[in-house]
Design a protein around this nucleic acid. Sequence first.
DNA 1: CACTTGACCTGTCCGC
DNA 2: TGCGGACAGGTCAAGT
Length: 288
Amino acid sequence: MPELPEVETVRTGLQKLIIGKTIHAATHDTVRSFPNSPEDAASYMIGASVDSIRRRGKALIIALSSGYSLVVHLKMTGQLVYVGDVRFGAGHPSDSLVGTLPDKSTRVTIEFSDGTKLYFNDQRKFGWMRLMPSVQVADLPFMQRLGPEPLEESFTVADFHERLSRRPRSNIKAVLLDQTVIAGVGNIYADESLWGARIHPKRLTGTLTKSEKELLYKEVRFVMNLSIEKGGSSNQTYVNAEGKKGSYMDFARVFRRENQLCQRCGTVIEKIRVAGRGTHICPTCQQE
DNA sequence: CACTTGACCTGTCCGC
DNA sequence: TGCGGACAGGTCAAGT
């Protein structure tokens, strides 16, 4: 569920909260949280401070002063939540969370030298965090295969055309969800952008007109930028680094709005299944 | 090779 | 109220 806008919101939150802090202790559950990491991952973190936090697609890269980085993928239900210290007094952004974490979904706890903590929680355990030398992060197979960042200036409509043209016989929704085509689009923003471009998610990419693809390119960027502005979407478990929900769902046009009326034409929004996922469409605006 | 489906998990919701 | 089953949807492995 955390897609590009949610992960970006977590990134900017952590940027404000943990840069420069020194790791004092770290605990984690068994191998699941740290696949392929040094067995004593915690000992590689202690004493290091947080240098920078980057995002690539839906992944976060927390670079430490020791030359190691924590690479995190939240998958469906992962959360990275920072909790202050009660000694900081009232007004700290995540005061309300003091005492509520860790809970049974907590997989990793990182404690900073000022007593504040960063929790990696994941109800469904699909997410992962791994520790590796920073110079090797770019060599991770999934990083190498990742498509371009849709919000970067360098990602042009021509790139979008070219990338879609490689998958002419797939339906457009499956292509939007494919991280090797474009990085960061998930189920929410695929549905939202297809509605915006009036394209049925089952349309084969090869049948899209040039103007439809141009519109879709704009819509993908529009919904992602709007969502970042709104702090992301929280339809179930997503929260930002301060444990707060995002408000994009208040603005969503079709996602999770089945049985409500299309704001463009008044038709009842339907939920169907495309590419194995729940998919929301306006059957009038989006003709197959 | 291109493309689709199933598995990984756990909590929630729905119908009986 | 309890219980089985469908569902949620990111990614990769396995299947067609």
